[in-house]
Design a protein around this nucleic acid. Structure first.
Length: 579
DNA sequence: GCCGTTTTCGGCCCGACTGTTTTCAGTCG
């Protein structure tokens, strides 16, 4: 994330906290700052590209007042209003507001009674019993505050989508095993397939009388580490796996659609939908769609029913991020998103010839036995990748012979020849064109210089007529390594001109391109590939992760190259070579 | 503070759980 965006996001989040703390009547102002903070944090481009063009107010949630503050910050490095606000509250204490149980009103009372000014003092006062002497702070509340303080660190770290899918399914299976349960489904950001997941949401239906029994069974499961809350219709627990929070909601079977809609989010999508419903004289809650005047329930059994009653076509969960999907749905223009079954082959993987764990024949037999693919492309590393056992030109020639041998043995032209060739610091490749020309598919990737601006390097690679695709283009590793700076608009323009595809790499910690960049690529007319970059058997299953990214980027089958037959892909490569 | 195919003013989604209360505020998702 661009540094300025991060700084501004933090400032606006702080301002939101300050307004919540100061005065309940400023609630909506606080919400506005909160929203601005989130939007700016999610922004792909550096905010200064907006300030330069005077387009700040085109960002949703940014109006004239916040735009002015952004300009002030970009120009002077400060926001006067924020500086003066900071002096009126114990700002160091408000850091705690991100922790559950530490709301503005509680912190305010603690500050006023104990004259405490920072988070460490609050923690100390909690532990030595001073806070439990304040009216309204009983033993349970203090215990809860101490507990969530302890949990805060581990729970705040988000988990990778892949891990969340595995953990979520484990819990989901437990519900499906209970005979009282009618339906159970993963909801929340997990259902929308965000690249990282905060907590796991599960929705369950049953007869009303079975609710208590289900909750009781659930909180007693061995996989539950700690119970945070439980009532008649919901429960929150921490599970052993990844130390993550799981929220369960139980509803009646005829509320399935409205509850799923509500529990899937995103929050922004729901708020927009509810606002529209309200304008039309309806009210949406997790219990259904209601006519405000008569109080009559209009819909709620399925999500589709609710969308339709409000004049929308149904919207896939991956699109529910308030990015204009409701406008499209109103015009019946929701794209037909790519699905896993559309994928006809895997475009990047490694064998024992470089750093993979399977030899070519085992690999081919495994994939053709477990996946319905028409082709796979073997893309072992080139010589610069010494640690990964990268190969030189002669070794690639030998490998081509081996691939032919295996294909003959399998009696089909299943394995395509290829490489993941290194893009060197100067933008040149570390394999000779004479070799690249002989391969079916060339993917070029950056493996060094992660802190530099790599725009020109990627462009240079695109301009080589034997390069068909750029691999893991942004170089980020989720939670470990930031993406290197790149002028993406420029890069995607060149990609389009040169007929170079860009990869959506499915490795669980890469997910690269991410959804935002995939949107930008698609809008620029750049073709995408979805590939697992598998190094071992289990990783071929990552393909679904890439499909999820593509769906979040509103991609159809036509945007994804490897939904096509190999003949089509060959034509794509040939067009570039002829240019 | 943001926002607008009924509004440039007057709205701003909706309900459950907890704890400490005698009817509700605070917090959360």
């Amino acid at each position: 994330m661009p540094v300025v965006n991060k700084e501004l996001g933090k400032i606006f989040s702080d301002m939101s906290h300050i307004y919540q703390y100061k005065n309940g009547k400023q609630r909506f102002r606080a919400i506005a700052y909160e929203k601005a903070s989130r939007v700016i944090n999610d922004l792909q481009d550096d905010i200064t590209t907006f300030t330069k063009k005077g387009q700040l107010e085109e960002i949703p949630g940014v109006g004239s007042s916040i735009a002015e503050k952004i300009n002030e910050y970009v120009k002077t490095g400060k926001i006067k209003k924020f500086e003066s606000l900071k002096k009126t509250v114990p700002i160091d204490m408000l850091e705690l507001m991100n922790i559950s149980g530490f709301g503005p009103q509680s912190l305010k009372r603690i500050h006023q009674r104990l004259k405490i000014n920072n988070r460490d003092e609050v923690i100390k006062a909690l532990q030595d019993g001073r806070i439990s002497e304040i009216k309204g702070f009983g033993k349970k509340k203090v215990d809860n505050m101490l507990r969530s303080l302890k949990l805060h660190k581990t729970v705040e770290e988000r988990m990778l989508l892949w891990n969340a899918i595995e953990a979520g399914n484990k819990v989901l299976d437990e519900f499906k095993k209970m005979k009282e349960v009618r339906q159970a489904e993963l909801a929340g950001s997990l259902r929308r397939k965000k690249e990282t997941i905060g907590d796991i949401d599960i929705l369950v239906t049953c007869d009303e009388k079975s609710r208590k029994k289900i909750i009781t069974k659930f909180v007693a499961l061995p996989l539950v580490k700690e119970v945070l809350a439980k009532g008649d219709t919901k429960a929150s627990v921490i599970i052993n796996e990844f130390n993550k929070q799981v929220d369960v909601r139980i509803i009646n079977p005829d509320e399935w659609g409205s509850a799923l809609l509500y529990f899937t989010g995103s929050k922004e999508h729901n708020v927009q939908l509810r606002t529209i419903a309200r304008d039309k004289g309806y009210k949406i809650s997790e219990y259904g769609l209601f006519d405000i005047k008569t109080g009559k329930r209009i819909a709620g059994g399925t999500e589709e029913e609710i969308y339709n009653k409000l004049g929308f076509e149904s919207i896939p969960p991956e699109m529910r991020e308030q990015k204009g999907e409701l406008d499209l749905a109103a015009k019946n223009k929701i794209p037909s998103l790519v699905t896993l079954t559309d994928i006809k082959g895997d475009m990047q993987m490694h064998s024992t010839w470089s750093d993979g764990t399977m030899d070519i024949e085992d690999l081919a037999r495994f994939v053709s036995g477990h996946y319905p693919y028409e082709y796979i492309v073997l893309t072992d590393h080139s010589k610069s990748e010494i640690i990964a056992g990268g190969m030189n030109e002669e070794q690639f020639i030998d490998q081509v012979k081996e691939i032919r041998r295996v294909n003959t043995k399998l009696k089909k032209d299943f394995i395509k020849t290829g490489t993941e060739v290194d893009i060197k610091a100067d933008g040149s490749l570390d394999l000779k064109d004479e070799l690249l020309e002989q391969l079916d598919w060339v993917c070029a990737s950056i493996h060094t210089g992660f802190t530099h601006d790599n725009t020109e390097r990627i462009i240079a690679a695109c301009e080589n007529k034997f390069v068909n695709c750029i691999g893991h283009p942004s170089g980020r590793l989720i939670g470990q390594r930031e993406a290197y700076p790149v002028n993406w608009e420029k890069v995607f323009r060149v990609a389009k001109q040169t007929n170079t595809a860009f990869e959506i790499n499915c490795q669980a910690d890469r997910m690269d391109l991410n959804d935002e960049l995939a949107i930008m690529a698609r809008e620029n007319g750049v073709k995408l590939t979805i590939s697992t970059d598998s190094h071992q058997q289990s990783q071929f299953a990552f393909m679904q992760l890439g499909v999820f990214i593509a769906r979040r980027a509103w991609c159809t089958k036509n945007d994804i190259l490897n939904t096509a037959s190999w003949n089509e892909i060959k034509k794509f490569a040939e067009r570039k070579r002829k240019k």
